[in-house]
Design a protein around this nucleic acid. Structure first.
Lengths: 232, 232
DNA sequence: ACCTGAACACCGTTCAAGT
DNA sequence: ACCTGAACACCGTTCAAGT
């Protein structure tokens, strides 16, 4: 994955010198500002006042760079304090919520998440924490990976869809909720996406963002209840 | 979305003439053969023995074309027979399994699914069926969309990850299981992706594909149990 | 060790023009 | 109504060369 051993960031490095950290910093700034679609090697190089090809000394290719960026945002995810003595279910919900929050803040990362392996140090840190949480559950060890996959595959799917409304709305200058309503109204009789007006009334005057939050937490509760209920 | 009204496929159309159906057929063939990454307007045009720009008479842009392709594969998903009188839970499991099967068969479609709205006629057909199934559950109507979202967001997340192993393995000439094992062995102490050998032994000599199937169905059971158990 | 220049083989899309 | 040619403004990456 990494093409070169990380050179020591010793005192020799001048201020304007290119190095991995400066590259990743610029990378994250560009991705947050413009998204993955508008990101390119050439733009990143321009942003660093450097020739496109100089990047290839630090990195094998574009995918490599995106994997670095993805692991960097994984580092932003807040982990629950294991010493706080919370119920394992609460810590699992905290992990899911923190993951969702970071990915909604960096939609480009969510789009990369499905493409790469995600085995960088920050991703491992997150996974290790998740494992420690599930290990405090009453589930037998044979179910640990099943349970974690269930929760985070759901969280991933949920967040991809949520992000699609937010980004789609932003693209046409609407909020996620306005965009959702417009699309929903254009498709009548579709389950799960049925007439937005009816859906809003059913849910008692909540905003769509509040409904999304409710659904997210309710489904987590369903999963946790399901996995702890039956011996199966 | 569609740039032009669909012209009648009347008897006037010659054999070699370009039309929407011929375009979509070639599109699906190319996507299945080479994937989204290698697909381009120019390759599609070449495949149809036509100039790239002629495609733009039938379609607004590349995204338009991919939305058409995505809806076309949605038409391949087998729906349960509503008259068969199955338990609603079994029909929901059938829907989830059929969705997964079609998406694994067309990995490019899975990658597009997160990007587009998916409100074409075939997607609507699928959604309408899902709604009919959940309507037979004991859940109150206010929970229908929550329940369907929960299931299909999970199924989406599961299938994206499954597809990543299959595609990643194929790219380096390995099976999904070999690829998974190699990656797992390269990352020690990671929960959910921990040492493949240990995981396989724990699960009693099953192949990874069998373990994936087990996990998929078990999680569906957890979700269904969770949503039907508590009044919440 | 680190960076550049020129080049290769591509992209999606616009626009004016042909038939 | 349907299709083309030429052009614009891009891509990622290789390779040989500079310092």
């Amino acid at each position: 994955m990494r093409s070169r051993p990380a050179r020591g960031t010793g005192p020799g490095a001048g201020a304007g010198a290119l190095d991995r950290d400066r590259i990743v910093a610029a990378l994250l700034r560009l991705l947050d500002a413009d998204g993955v679609d508008r990101f390119s090697m050439r733009r990143l190089a321009a942003d660093l006042n450097v020739t496109p090809m100089s990047l290839y000394w630090y990195v094998d290719n574009k995918d490599d760079l995106l994997e670095l960026a993805l692991d960097a945002v994984a580092g932003e995810i807040e982990l629950p304090d294991p010493a706080a003595g919370h119920d394992w279910r609460d810590d699992l919900r905290l992990l899911a919520t923190a993951w969702r929050r970071v990915m909604v803040a960096h939609p480009w990362a969510l789009r990369c998440y499905g493409e790469y392996l995600n085995i960088g140090p920050q991703s491992v840190r997150f996974a290790r924490c998740a494992r420690a949480v599930i290990a405090r559950s009453p589930l037998p060890p044979t179910r640990w990976s099943t349970a974690l996959s269930a929760v985070f595959q759901y969280v991933y799917g949920f967040t991809v869809m949520e992000s699609r409304w937010i980004e789609g709305g932003r693209a046409i200058g609407r909020t996620a909720d306005e965009f959702f309503s417009e699309v929903a109204d254009s498709v009548t009789g579709v389950p799960g996406v049925e007439a937005a007006g009816g859906l809003l009334e059913q849910r008692g005057g909540l905003t769509l963002a509040q409904i999304r939050d409710q659904d997210f937490h309710r489904t987590l509760d369903w999963l946790i209840a399901g996995m702890t209920a039956a011996p199966s």
